[in-house]
């Protein structure tokens, strides 16, 4: 494995499109069904970083996602960007999992794939924003992690990464295998290519596994085995704006408008 360039595994999630987020009025949680979805934007940066490592050092990039069958469309997009193979972990018993069982399930899947040198995740998701899963995977696999990484150098037996912190940057080095979580907007994700889309159309690149296939204990996943649940999503209610309409003959209406703006202190008198 090492002689030929690193095997990277990128964990991605399919999320509701940011502009189209809707809250279900009944359950008070995010609507996911029937809403347009996309690859979690930071995960695209993670994919790009992994593909850049492959561009420079060879090897392969595998993409993994845990979710319902509709997540296949995100896997297809990742494959069309240049990933070599994709894995979908899908099972009803995974429903309602929070970040603890998710990190566990993904780690078991990564372990089953095996032979990995680098594991990439986006820094967080746009629909939950916890940032837990990457570090959670590092904990399960028991390897080093560089979080909030904006640049990465692959040096064979180790990596050097630039990490964003509140007041600047840190540079970290660590041996592989390791987990890297990638800063949103830290690179320009490449679009799917024609060649990539043709490969996807030919098929055979996606492997689908259930919990049983991977050997995941049902007692460790799902809503019953999640320490947290989403109880409610509050949306901010903007106060009504006071509006006044000045109608009539344009010149005269403008004169009244200017008077009102001066009276309000918006314009100097």
């Amino acid at each position: 494995m090492a002689a030929k360039g690193p095997r990277s595994i990128v964990c991605i999630k399919q999320v509701p499109k940011a502009q189209e987020l809707q809250v279900d009025p009944v359950t008070n949680t995010l609507k996911r069904v029937g809403v347009p979805s996309e690859i979690n934007p930071p995960d695209r940066n993670a994919l790009e970083m992994a593909l850049q490592v492959k561009d420079r050092a060879g090897g392969e990039v595998l993409v993994v996602t845990m979710g319902p069958p509709v997540f296949t469309s995100s896997l297809e997009e990742a494959l069309a960007m240049g990933c070599d193979r994709a894995f979908l972990l899908t099972d009803r018993i995974l429903g309602g999992s929070d970040t603890v069982p998710t990190a566990h399930a993904l780690s078991e899947t990564i372990h089953k794939i095996g032979g990995y040198d680098l594991i990439f995740c986006g820094e967080e998701t746009t629909d939950a924003s916890t940032g837990h899963v990457g570090p959670g995977i590092a904990g399960h696999i028991d390897c080093a992690q560089i979080t909030y990484c904006s640049e990465l150098e692959y040096l064979g037996d180790r990596v050097r990464g630039k990490r964003t912190v509140e007041d600047g940057y840190e540079w970290w080095e660590c041996p592989r295998p390791c987990v890297v979580t990638v800063n949103f907007l830290s690179n320009r994700p490449r679009p799917p290519s024609l060649t990539g889309k043709i490969r996807v159309k030919r098929g055979g690149l996606i492997t689908t596994w259930s919990c049983a296939d991977v050997g995941i204990d049902p007692g460790k996943v799902g809503i019953r085995n999640s320490p947290t649940i989403v109880a409610k999503v509050d949306t901010v209610q903007l106060p009504d704006r006071k509006a006044k309409v000045f109608r009539g003959e344009p010149r005269e209406a403008v004169a009244r408008l200017i008077e009102a703006m001066v009276a309000d202190g918006v314009l100097p008198g």
Binding site: P192, S193, L194, K197, I198, K201
Partner: peptide, 9 residues
């Protein structure tokens, strides 16, 4: 025919 969309030649 293989139809590929979303790609501009």
């Amino acid at each position: 025919a293989m139809l590929i969309t979303g790609i501009r030649v």
